[in-house]
Design a binder for these strands. Structure first.
Length: 211
DNA sequence: CCAATGATTGCCT
DNA sequence: GGCAATCATTGGC
């Protein structure tokens, strides 16, 4: 796979008003990073939607606008990366338009290109499903950190592409979001989307992958 | 200024 | 299943 063959998702994809539709559409798309000339690609299999100022689980809830979340208040199509628990970077895609701080968290992917680099970045010796299972692991394997917050997803170093791979609607499951119990009734919203039976989806025990 | 905390993970029992 | 790691950000004083 060559980077010039990959078709980036357009700005109008990201500025859609329905963040749930975007979160679902992102399933099956390719997350591409090329930092320091190292190409890594993985396929998105789990997402979570954060619906702006009315969503108690969102960093932008109640129009809370801070230095960290400022990028969410800008136009869709940019990355929002932040440090969680002082330990893990989580990669989000900003959606909707200016002053509508919606975002989609990428929670799990399936490694496609640059697996050696991913193993090196994560300090793993062998490939198993934990390599890109869970949002912290996705960012680590793809080489995404705080420096990559606010990047335009039309950039060549970080973007999402469509290679024609289709996920059918009946293979998508919606569940409540993970780790947002503090959000009261909003913690129950079915805003997490997963590819049915995909072994990289978070929450299952990892096992070795047959070669 | 400073204490509290989290959109998690992995190791321990 | 329980919990420690670890720190930028946040909000209160």
């Amino acid at each position: 796979m060559k980077i010039e063959d990959l078709k980036k998702l357009t700005p109008s994809f990201y500025t859609q008003k329905n963040v749930l539709a975007v979160a679902k559409s992102l399933l099956g798309k390719l997350l591409v990073t090329q930092f320091n000339n190292q190409l890594t690609i993985s396929r998105i299999v789990e997402t979570e939607a954060y619906e702006g100022i009315t969503d108690k689980a969102s960093h932008a809830y109640n129009n809370r606008r801070t230095t960290r979340t400022e990028i969410m208040f800008g136009n869709g199509g940019f990355s929002y990366v932040y440090l969680c628990y002082g330990v893990h970077y989580l990669f989000n895609v900003v959606t909707h338009t200016i002053n509508h701080p919606h975002a989609v968290l990428i929670r799990a992917t399936e490694p496609i290109v640059g697996i050696e680099a991913m193993l090196e970045r994560t300090g793993k010796l062998t490939l198993d499903y934990s390599l890109t299972k869970g949002p912290g692991n996705v960012a680590k394997a793809m080489g995404i950190n705080k420096l990559h917050s606010g990047i335009n997803l039309q950039s060549n170093e970080l973007f999402i592409a469509d290679d024609g791979y289709k996920i059918f609607t009946n293979n998508i499951l919606a569940t409540k979001r993970i780790g947002v119990d503090y959000a009261g009734e909003d913690a129950l919203l079915p805003y997490r989307f997963i590819v049915k039976d995909n072994l990289y989806v978070s929450g299952k025990k990892s096992q070795n992958i047959a070669v």
